[in-house]
Nucleic acid binder design. Structure first.
Lengths: 245, 245
DNA sequence: CGAGCCTGTAACAGGTTGTAACAAGAACGC
DNA sequence: GCGTTCTTGTTACAACCTGTTACAGGCTCG
C-alpha cells in the first residue's frame, strides 16, 4: 500500500471537489461521494483508508452515517463540519469519529489531521496488512514481511532489530509523506494506550532513524531514502511496491 | 512551469496585506497594488498571471480598470467586492472578469477560484503543489529536484542546505525575472519554515543569497547568475531548461 | 565631495540534528 | 544462576542550519 485512499463525503459539489483536488495534489488518492449510497458504492469498489465526512449532508445525517460505518466496517473517520460548537464535536466523537475538523479549515491542519489518523490507524492496518502482503520493494531493496528478511540490492541480507523493522514498516506504509516524530512514535508503540505523554520520547526516534540509516543507506551520511525534514521529522523518499501473497 | 504571480489590487492596506500574505502562504507569489499606476508598474516589472481586483478603489473605478486591462493585456482577472448584489456580479462579468468573489470571503473559496481561473488560463497552479520531478540545467549546472542533487559543470556535487535549495528553486522557476525580497521570502516560506512575521525578514534573504552565491558562483564576488537588482531584489540571469524526470 | 542608502559578509547566537558512548534490560546458552 | 550478547533509550557533544547584527564598502544624488 503505497498510497492512502481517502473518501471525501460532502454534498456540496464545490467543496467536495476542492477537497479531493487538494488531497490528490498532496499525494493521496481521493475519491468523492455525496450520499450514503455513493459511500457504499465506493467502499464496495475498493479499499478505503479514511473517510472525511461532512456532518451536514442534505437528506442523511452525517452522524448517523458515521455511527453506521463504524459499526459495520472498521474504517477511520474524520468528521468535517461548518459548526464548530463543542457539543457538535462531542457528538462526533461519541459516534466513533477519529477526529474532527471545522470548516473552513486550514489546509495544513486538514493534512495534519489526515496524516495523524492514518498513522494512528497504521498499526492496526499494518497488522491486517501483514497477513496479505509478503514483500515490499523499494529502490532495489526487498523487505519480506513474512520472513522478516531485508535484502539489499546486492542480495546481501541485512539484520534489523525489532524496533528498526517496525520503523521501516512505518515508512513503507507512508512513502513520500513526512512523518513527525510523534507520528513515528505512535506507529512504533504497538502497546497502545499506556504512556500517552507525547513529548517523553526524547531523541530515541533520531537515534533509531540513524541506526536504520546505517543499515539500509548506501551512504548513511548522505541519506537518499530516509531523509530529514528539518523542523518536521523524516520522509521515506522512495517509491514502494508491494506484492500480495 | 513557474510560480504563479498574482497581483492583489485593493486600496485598503490591511485587506491587501492580508490577502497577499495568505496567498503567499498558499504558494503563490503575491504582489500588492493600490492604484492603476501601481498595477501598470507591476505589470511592466514582470509577468502577472492573475489580478485580484477590488471594484471599490478610491479614485478609479475597478470596473473601468478591469475593462482597460482586458482590452490592453490578456491577463485573467477576478473581481473582488464587498457588494454581492447580482448586478454587480453581472457588471463584473460584462467587463471581462473571469470570476467574481464577494467580501468577506471564505479563504478556501478564494483559493479555489484562483486555482480554477489559473487552470482555465492554462497556467501553472502553485508552487506548493508542484510535485513533478524534474531536472533543471543552467549554465552547465544541473539540479536534480528528485534526488536533491546539485552538480557543477565540472561534475562535482555541491551540497546545498534546505533553505538554499528552496532559494535555488525559486530562481529556477523565475529565470530572468527580478524577484523582490518579499517574493523570495514568500516562495521560501511555502517550502516550510512558517513563522513569517510579514516584513520582518531583515537581511536574511541577502545573507541567504550570499551563501548560495558562494556555492554556485565561480566568482562569488562577481556574480553572473545571481545578480543584484539594486533597489529591487535579485535576478537569476541564466537560461534554464527543465526535463521531465 | 559628503550624506544617506543599499548591499556584502563576517561573526555570533539559538535551534536542530547526527552520533558515539554509556547504561539498563532482555534473550539466550551454559 | 551467571555471563555474554543484543537491543534500545539517554545523554552529551559536535556539526550544521539559519536569522540577526554590525561593520565596511559601494552607489546615487545633490
Amino acid at each position: 500500500m503505497s498510497i492512502s485512499r481517502l473518501l471525501v463525503v460532502d454534498d456540496d459539489d464545490e467543496m467536495r471537489d476542492m477537497m479531493t483536488e487538494y488531497l490528490r495534489k498532496q499525494g493521496f488518492m481521493a475519491l468523492g461521494a455525496a450520499s450514503l449510497a455513493e459511500i457504499e458504492a465506493a467502499m464496495a469498489a475498493g479499499r478505503i483508508d479514511l473517510i472525511l465526512l461532512d456532518v451536514m449532508l442534505g437528506d442523511e445525517s452525517g452522524l448517523e452515517i458515521c455511527a453506521t460505518l463504524r459499526r459495520d466496517q472498521d474504517v477511520p473517520i474524520i468528521m468535517v463540519s461548518a459548526l464548530s460548537a463543542d457539543h457538535q464535536r462531542m457528538a462526533g466523537y461519541e459516534v466513533g469519529a477519529d477526529d474532527y475538523i471545522a470548516k473552513p479549515f486550514n489546509p495544513d491542519l486538514l493534512l495534519a489531521r489526515v496524516r495523524a489518523v492514518l498513522a494512528r490507524a497504521g498499526r492496526s492496518a499494518s497488522l491486517a496488512y501483514r497477513r496479505r502482503t509478503r514483500t515490499f520493494r523499494f529502490n532495489g531493496w526487498r523487505y519480506d514481511a513474512k520472513r522478516n528478511e531485508v535484502l539489499s540490492p546486492d542480495g546481501y541480507q541485512v539484520a534489523l532489530s525489532r524496533r528498526e523493522t517496525a520503523l521501516l514498516q512505518a515508512f513503507l506504509a507512508n512513502p513520500h509523506i513526512p512523518l513527525t516524530r510523534e507520528e513515528i512514535a505512535a506507529a512504533l508503540d504497538v502497546t497502545g494506550e499506556g504512556d500517552h505523554n507525547d513529548e517523553a520520547h526524547g531523541r530515541a526516534i533520531d537515534v533509531l532513524v540513524g541506526r536504520l540509516r546505517s543499515k539500509i543507506e548506501a551512504a548513511p551520511k548522505d541519506p537518499r531514502m530516509l531523509r530529514t525534514e528539518r523542523g518536521v521529522g523524516y520522509v521515506f523518499a522512495a517509491d514502494v511496491t508491494s506484492e500480495d501473497a
